[in-house]
Design a protein around this nucleic acid. Structure first.
Length: 618
RNA sequence: GGGGCCGUAGCUCAAUUGGUUAGAGUACCGGACUGUCGAUCCGGUGGUUGCGGGUUCGAGUCCCGUCGGCCUCGCCA
């Protein structure tokens, strides 16, 4: 899984070595070891105990011929997870008794003295790595006994891997002149868009701190303060519903630089991440990373976080479909762009050689797959041996249209072509994106042998919000609008693009960032588009505006979702696997039973009273 | 807030159409065993089937409620 870091010396007052380091050349040494009883194999007249710590396992031999009867009897009473200290002689194992399953398999320690440091209750589930496979312990049980779960070698390796990732990041950033600075946890609400966790103030009844959703504003203030290059391994809090890839508190690698543009952020992060791959996975990352403009990503992959390991690509066939005798094709193609609608489109996905790989039933099921995107259905055409088209949709592309379609898609005999038409191009794109993802996986087209990173750039600044008939920022509103679209801020907000970027790894967004507004006038105009009056802007973000007026350098930054990043690097799909003390989907900690009711006196001190007539969520 | 799945021994699971005394592996306890490494062999303990109610001659199984966990849509970068 990972590269061993160098083992430090374990010589302390209680032990001479860890359980993972003794080798054949240590034979003859007298050593003291400490650890947990991993497993014991009791032969009556001879007793083996595997002693475990986080560095490995070492076989202990209790031989009554070399041991007092009392000590041997004491050894016989050892049970899994008892904590012991032993002293004995390292011996090379007999040839036939060597084990290649253990790094220490060539030696064993013949115990002469045994000290039981602490007796352990029978654990609720096995800690030993050599427990039977396939009997995965339920996450609920693991979280309830997390201190024991965390003792399992697989879990330890994950957290240690995470540590190595963080260390690689820290060292790489330090080498580049970055300064790690902590920002407040008790702060005030920042406009990140999520619900805040609130902390009541004892000294000011009725006022609340908010836990930060990110250090966004603080890091901008640090740029204003002249700190040039800042980073932080920052805890962030968002009080929203949970998912496998979402915890209520999570960690970001947060960074910000002054006197830079996008390119500097790209180069910096690429260098820092290459360091992580190098040191944590032993892999040389290809640099620079790939780049895609947002509209290009949507057009070719139907997603703003495409998995580039999937070779399938979407093509636009709107112009061909516009001439189709099929009404739904021609109408979708002709749907006009309006103030709030992007216009219609017909998109096609060619799946090479797949004409015979999907059954009629599977093809019909694609419609359901695509339904959540709002698409009405999926048409399909197969390219037969002679090049002629097959399937119900072929009549929608007669004669020259069929040829045009084949040419556009570079379709070969044996190919399957999936077509989605919609009066909203975004829907057609999203539907094709889903088809691409699902078929790529289902047909085994995704090349999982290498990690693929890609920057997504040139996002639209605003999104139309039908509920308020207004505009909301797609990213966050402190991003600079792209220079060549800034004039459209007031008259055509949807045409404005941001200087924001996402970093996508194997189809998952692992980070995002932007070039910030350092010009207070532009910042005001952006907030105005979002419906903030100058007074409101000043009231909510006054401290930022003030800072921007006080000598703010041009600055830009980014943040990497560290938990998700580590999970992806380890090929895990649940953040809980890389978080030491994770929470459930209801945001409780099964180990500490947080959140919990508090003493009435505590509430009184805060000036709070719990109303029983208001249910949760109201 | 909505949807889906799940809850049986410490753990991982089984239990026919609603049927009689709820089983297995492992863990645990006891015994045997001097080269094992998932030790092996023999024996044994262990159950409020999450909780509450209902239907039924009869409920682990069906229905309602509730608690908890997981996944997911909304929400959230």
């Amino acid at each position: 899984m990972s590269h061993e870091s160098q083992t430090p010396s374990f010589s302390t007052t209680r032990r001479d070595a860890s359980c993972g380091e003794l080798r054949r050349h240590d034979a003859g040494r007298r050593v003291r070891l400490c650890g947990w009883v991993d497993r014991r194999r009791d032969h009556g007249g001879l007793l083996f105990v595997d002693l475990r710590d986080r560095w490995g396992r070492t076989q202990l031999v209790f031989d009554p011929d070399r041991l007092g009867a009392e000590v041997f009897a004491e050894a016989g009473r050892l049970r899994a997870e008892d904590v012991i200290a032993v002293e004995g002689a390292v011996r090379e194992r007999p040839e036939e008794a060597r084990s290649d399953k253990l790094a220490t398999g060539e030696i064993e320690v013949h115990v002469e003295r045994l000290e039981l440091l602490n007796r352990a209750e029978t654990p609720p589930f096995p800690v030993s790595a050599s427990a039977r496979e396939g009997d995965d312990v339920a996450m609920e049980t693991r979280m309830r006994y997390r201190h024991i779960d965390l003792r399992r070698p697989v879990v330890q390796q994950r957290l240690i891997f995470r540590h190595r990732v963080v260390m690689a990041l820290r060292q790489a950033l330090d080498a580049l002149g970055f300064v790690e600075i902590e920002t407040p946890i008790l702060t005030r609400s920042t406009p990140e868009g999520a619900r805040d966790y609130l902390v009541p103030s004892r000294l000011q009844h009725g006022s609340f701190y908010a836990l930060p959703q990110s250090p966004q504003l603080f890091k901008q203030l640090l740029m204003v303060a002249g700190y040039d290059r800042y980073f932080q391994v920052a805890r962030c809090f968002r009080d929203e519903d949970l998912r496998a890839d979402r915890q209520p508190e999570f960690t970001q690698l947060d960074l910000e630089m002054s006197f830079v543009d996008e390119e500097d952020i790209y180069r910096t992060l690429e260098q820092v991440l290459a360091e992580v791959w190098q040191r944590c996975k032993g892999v040389q990352l290809e640099r620079p990373f790939a780049r895609l403009r947002y509209d290009e990503a949507i057009a070719r992959y139907g997603s703003d976080r495409p998995d580039l390991r999937n070779p399938l690509e979407i093509r636009d066939v709107t112009d061909v479909a516009a001439r189709s005798p099929f009404g739904f094709l021609a109408e979708a193609a002709a749907a006009p762009r309006t103030r709030t609608e992007p216009g219609g489109a017909v998109r096609a996905l060619r799946v090479p050689g797949a004409a015979d790989r999907l059954s009629r039933k599977e093809l019909d099921a694609l419609g359901e797959l695509v339904a959540p995107t709002g698409a009405k259905g999926v048409g399909w055409i197969k390219v037969a041996e002679g090049g002629e088209l097959r399937g119900a949709l072929r009549k929608g592309f007669p004669d020259a249209l069929g040829a045009a379609l084949r040419e556009r898609l570079e379709a070969q005999p044996g190919d399957l072509v999936l077509v989605v038409a919609d009066r909203n191009a975004d829907v057609a794109a999203a539907a094709c994106g889903r088809l691409r993802e699902t078929l790529g996986r289902q047909l085994g087209l995704v090349d999982t042998s290498a990690d693929r990173l890609v920057w997504i750039t040139d996002f639209p600044y605003f999104e139309y919000d039908p509920e308020t008939d207004g505009y909301i920022a797609c990213r966050h509103p402190f991003t600079q609008p792209a220079a060549d679209s800034i004039d459209r801020l007031e008259d055509e907000p949807l045409a404005v693009r941001t200087r924001a970027y996402d970093l996508v790894l194997n189809g998952s967004e692992i980070g995002s960032g932007s070039v910030r507004n350092h010009d207070v006038e532009i910042q005001k105009r952006v907030l105005a588009v979002m419906g903030y009056s100058p007074e409101e802007s000043e009231q909510r973000f006054g401290f930022l505006m003030e800072a921007l007026r006080s000598g703010a350098p041009p600055h830009a930054g980014a943040a990497i979702g560290l938990d998700r990043f580590c999970a992806l690097l380890l090929g895990l799909d649940n953040l809980r696997e890389v978080v030491a003390f994770p929470k459930t989907t209801r945001a409780s900690c099964l180990l500490t039973h947080a959140p919990a009711p508090v003493d009435p006196a505590q509430l009184a001190a805060l000036g709070l009273r719990i109303r029983s007539d208001v249910s949760v969520g109201e």
